[in-house]
Every structure is written in C-alpha cells, then in structure tokens.
Write a protein that binds this DNA or RNA. Structure first.
Lengths: 252, 252
DNA sequence: CTGGTCAAATGGCCTGACCAATTTGTATAG
DNA sequence: CTATACAAATTGGTCAGGCCATTTGACCAG
C-alpha cells in the first residue's frame, strides 16, 4: 500500500515495459523488435536480463522468437496468465473462507444433479482416503479427488479447475510448514467423517444438507488449523502480503 | 508438417524436464528445488540456461522463486496457460455457468455484510460503466470492477482474485473475437440495468435477492451471447495454432 | 534466370564474476 | 536460559564479454 519500492526483479520490469508498449500499439502486431543487443543498450540493462524478459513474453504468447531472425509481436493482449504474476499467496484462513463460499455453492448445485455413477466416484475417493491415513501424500490426493469430484458432478470444467486450483494452494512453502504441524491420522479421520456426511447429502439429493455439510467441513478444517498452533502464526502474517486481515470467522 | 526437427531450445528442454518431474510428483509440491548452480551442474548446462527455464516455469505458475531463499514448487500442473498449447480454455457458456454458481454465492454473502462505503464503490463502477457506453475498453474495465467489487465486500482476497481471473478469461483471443460480434451500446445498457438490480439488492441487505439478481444477470449474458451468433462458433477454431511463425511479416 | 557460396545479423548458450536478499548460526546482553 | 544483534553462508539477480548455430540476403558462377 505504501510504496512498491520497485524491488521487483529487473527482468520483470523490462517485460512489463515491453508488454505495455505492445498493448498500446507502439509496437504493432507483426512488427519486429530491436535486436536483443540493441534493447539491452537502449534499456541500460544487460543482455541476459533482456533475454529473460523476452522469454516471459514468449511464454505469455505475446511474441515469437525466431533464431537468427528476430523477435516478432504475435498478439496484443496476453491471455489471462495471471496465475503467477503477483504474489497472490493468500493466508490459509482466507483461503478456507473462500473455499467455504464457493464449494458450498458447488455442493448445493451438485446435490440437485447427482447420478449414481457420480456417487461411485466420490466413494472411491473416500475409500482411498480411509485406506491411507498413514500416507500423507495419498490422503491429500484423495482429499483433492473428493472435492474436485463434487465439482465434476456439476459437469463444468471451469468449476473443476477452480476447485482444484484452490485446493492446490494449500502449499505455499509457508502453508505446508504449518500443515505439517497438525495433519495426522486423527485429523484425517475427522475430515473423512465430514466428507462422508457431504457424500450422503449429495447422494440423497439434499441440496441444503450438502451445502451445510460442506460448510461444516471447511469450518472444521479452519478450527483444526487454528487449534493446533493457535496464534503461533498470527504475528508473522505479513508473509504472503495479505492485504486485509483474514477475518476468517464466518458466521454461517 | 515437414520439419519435425525443430531442435528445441535448450532452456525449453530443461523447463520440460523439470515440469514433468513436478507433474510426476518426483518434485513434491512445497518442496524446494536444488539451487540454480546445482541444477546447472546436474543437468550439464549453464546457469543462465537454468534461469531461463525456471522463469518459464514461474510464468506458468508452477514454481515460486524467492530471492535469497530458493525455488519452491507451487502447484503440480500448469494452471490455465492458454499460451502454451492445448485447449484448456473452456467455452464461453461453461465459463458463464461457473460464474453463475460462484458469483451468486459471493453476492449472497456480500449482501449480508455490505457497508455504505462498499456500496459507494459499486456505484462508482456503475457510473463509469454508464458513462462510457461507447468505449468498449472502459466499459469492460468498469464491468470488471463491479464484479470484483462485490467480492471485495466479503473482504477475502482469494475471492477477489478468483472472480477477477474468471472475468479475465473473456480476454482469450478466441472469446474476444466472438464478443466483438455482439457487444454494443444496447447490450451494455441491458447489463447495466442488471448490475443496478444487483447493487440495490446488496445495498438493501437482501441476500436472496442479490443471489437471484446475479443469477439473472449471468443468465442474461449467456442469452445475449447465444442470440447474437447462435452455434456459429461450435465448429471452426484453429486459433490456438499460432505456434507457427506469424505470417504478418509480409507487409506491414 | 538458377543455383550455390559467403558474410552480416541475430538468437542461443557459455564462463566467470559480483551484488543483493535471505537464511542460519553464533555470540553477546539481559 | 532467553532473546536480541550481528556476521557468515547460501541463494537468486545482474552484469560483462565471448563463441557458436541459424537465418537472411547479397553476390557470384553457371
């Protein structure tokens, strides 16, 4: 909020500058950019830095780099990369709150259209989860499969993707360090019970019940999280640059 | 296709190798990768090459590079990198359906906690939207501000981010092309009316009404979309194939 | 005109070095 | 013993200069 301080990596600043020149039309589509050596000189940076910036733009699909020929503008706007651009790692509580809002709605919707074969898939995930309470990796994978499986019932790829992405965020290096302190057979068993409640509600076509069960599950996750290490981390929350304090206390 | 040679650039080969190690789980999520210098030695390439490969993965959102600390695996599979290849981009209808599910829930939640100053922000977005019906860019920006503004009322950065990312998918080159066929002052005015209904419901603290208004808005968007060009887009689409050199170099 | 060769331009990659941010260990003060 | 402060080690960020491979176009021989 104060001053970005421009501590951003140099190659990113260069990439941003070129990107904006493309967006503004100053560099037209199809046009060839100056050679790497020229760009380095004009921008007063080294050639490796220019190269790194150009690779960013190439991955984003904005330019096309051709050996021995040059660098050409392909299109004017990047296609929603965003995934990594900022420092978007929100706090664990904030994440769980967001999941509560979104996944409750998905569970509600799923309950109204679940078919028997969908329930079978959820059951498979539950079996895998209960069968590997001592293998953290297997349990997490099954947990993920359960949540994305619910989204799959709705039959919408975007919902599946969003659900998966939010789940995968449980491990920024920082998040994972905290999780290792409280994840264990006991907590997994609790989560498993809550999963079963969600599954049953969806199988019964009980939309309101599914929504409530999902909310209970994610609320309990939050509670397990906080009880295990209390405020241990509440002080060092500046870690992920959370803008607003995660007022995670939701009321349901 | 005649030239399979391609002789891929080295840094891409390195990026592919590391990416597949992440996908296979050989490099677990949250884990720290070896230092750049070690990677360079183990892979028998130079450090700049390793750096370029890592920048690719960072732009793709797979790893998180932290100065002085190390490189960490963030997620297992690339998220929505339309630039790389494939058709991970879901269709417009699928996207609008997903937004209906998610944003309805957000609007419902927002209605229960909206404060006067939050409504002011929404109103500002509405004014900007109504004031620029002839400037597509301005209207889209205001439209985006309205939707993310609702998420902001909930006070959760993750919700804001997800809402923004879903909105930004309309910027995919393919989606954009279609939108240009039907977006116009008329459709924008309709959308504006629907926005006002949402705003009013939230301002009144009417959760159910806000949810319904949001659903109506996104349903209508879907309808406007389909009426303007029907199934015209269901067949043709090789837009994503611009891996080949852009033939734009001939004149311009 | 056709075909080939050659050289300039340009991107791809390397070596080696130094700087800046972060982490970690250690010593000192309380 | 705890906790703070400081210093060293680790690691990413940047720079400099160089050589090689590919592309491109001009030039020349046929």
């Amino acid at each position: 909020m104060f001053s970005p301080v421009e501590s951003r990596r140099l190659y990113r600043q260069v990439a941003d500058q070129i990107r904006s020149m493309i967006a503004s039309g100053e560099l037209a589509v199809g046009q060839r950019l100056p050679a790497e050596r020229e760009l380095a000189e004009q921008l007063s940076v080294s050639r490796p830095t220019v190269r790194e910036a150009l690779i960013v733009l190439e991955v984003e699909g904005l330019v096309n780099i051709r050996m021995g020929s040059g660098i050409y503008v392909v299109r004017r706007h990047a296609a929603s990369v965003a995934a990594s651009e900022g420092e978007p790692v929100e706090g664990p509580f904030e994440l769980l709150q967001a999941r509560a809002v979104i996944e409750c709605a998905i569970a509600e919707e799923a309950a109204t259209r679940a078919r028997p074969e969908d329930i079978v898939l959820l059951d498979e995930a539950l079996v895998r989860m209960s069968g590997g309470v001592n293998d953290a990796g297997a349990v997490i994978a099954a947990d993920r499969a359960f949540h994305t499986g619910i989204a799959a019932i709705v039959g919408n790829a975007t919902l599946i993707r969003v659900t998966g992405e939010m789940f995968d965020m449980r491990m920024s290096p920082y998040f994972e360090k905290l999780a290792s302190h409280f994840e264990g057979p006991t907590t997994w068993r609790s989560a498993l019970e809550e999963h079963r409640a969600i599954r049953d509600a969806i199988a019964a076509g009980d939309a309101i019940g599914a929504k409530a069960a999902m909310r209970a599950h994610l609320t309990m996750s939050q509670k397990r999280f906080s009880e295990s290490f209390g405020e241990e981390f509440s002080g060092e929350e500046e870690r992920g640059r959370d803008k607003g304090p995660a007022k995670a206390t939701d009321k349901t």
